[in-house]
């Protein structure tokens, strides 16, 4: 299996998230405008800057994200500011979820969460999968985890 990238629509999810963050961020500025301490454009400017950053981040994140199932490990490569490459040995997989949040359902996507007993990378989420893709991935990981024989997953 070669490195897989995410479904392009995941950008919509991330951009939506950036919109929400931008909205929250501009709230205090809006408050400042309301009490007359800040000019009219302040909340828009603040929100706009955050939104622009968020959108750029979302796009870069999408470009960067890839995952790959190798012979004995699941390999993830992601992160814009901090690049993180995680190797999850298949033996260590405790259980696998496929899940769909409300926004993901809205754009017809799903994600797959892989749990290990680790303390730091205890759950690894692979977003931006098609619903079928997510359940296929779950089944595949399950099969591989069983084959890998995680007798003592701890």
């Amino acid at each position: 299996m070669t490195a897989q990238s995410l479904h392009p629509r995941i950008r919509i999810v991330w951009i939506l998230r950036a919109v929400i963050v931008a909205a929250v961020f501009s709230l205090p500025f809006a408050g400042g405008f309301y009490i007359g301490r800040l000019p009219m454009w302040a909340p828009f400017a603040a929100g706009g800057v955050v939104l622009a950053l968020g959108v750029v981040h979302a796009v870069l994140k999408y470009r960067r994200w890839s995952y790959e199932i190798r012979e004995d490990a699941l390999y993830l490569d992601r992160g814009v500011v901090t690049q993180v490459r995680t190797t999850v040995p298949l033996v260590r997989i405790q259980h696998v979820d496929s899940r769909r949040g409300p926004v993901e359902r809205g754009v017809g996507l799903a994600s797959c969460v892989v749990y290990t007993a680790g303390s730091r990378g205890a759950d690894v989420r692979i977003p931006g999968l098609t619903p079928d893709g997510a359940s296929d991935l779950r089944e595949e990981l399950k099969r591989l985890a069983i084959r890998a024989d995680g007798e003592d997953a701890v």
Binding site: V81, T82, V84, T86, T87, R120, G121
Partner: peptide, 14 residues
């Protein structure tokens, strides 16, 4: 005992 191996590089480390 290794569970996962994480390789991370912050923007400064890069």
């Amino acid at each position: 005992r290794i569970q996962t191996v994480i390789d991370s590089r912050t923007i400064f480390q890069r």
